[in-house]
Amino acid sequence: MSDAFDITETLDVKGASCPMPVVQTKSAIDELETGDVLEVLATDPGSMSDIDGWAAGTEGVELLDQAAGDDVYKHYVRRTE
């Protein structure tokens, strides 16, 4: 899955709960350049829906992929502008 794009940076928000995974994802993506891909590692099950909703409602970002593991939820977000 992740071979379709290169991960620029990884944000570890394991342990954090709502609203921190989304808020910290936003802060981290703001630090990146256009085209860069941020990998977000979270343990909050709500992050699956929240990061999806955030990416859909926010300009300049694109959700490339999400993967629900046993304990860790992975999200891949690209900065598009």
């Binding site: 709502c18 609203p19 989304v22 808020v23 994802t25 936003k26 802060s27 955030w54 409602g57 926010t58 300009e59 300049g60």
Partner: peptide
């Protein structure tokens, strides 16, 4: 506070 910070993340 949760809604404010999240909305800020949405721009």
């Amino acid at each position: 506070l949760i809604l404010a910070s999240t909305a800020a993340a949405f721009g």
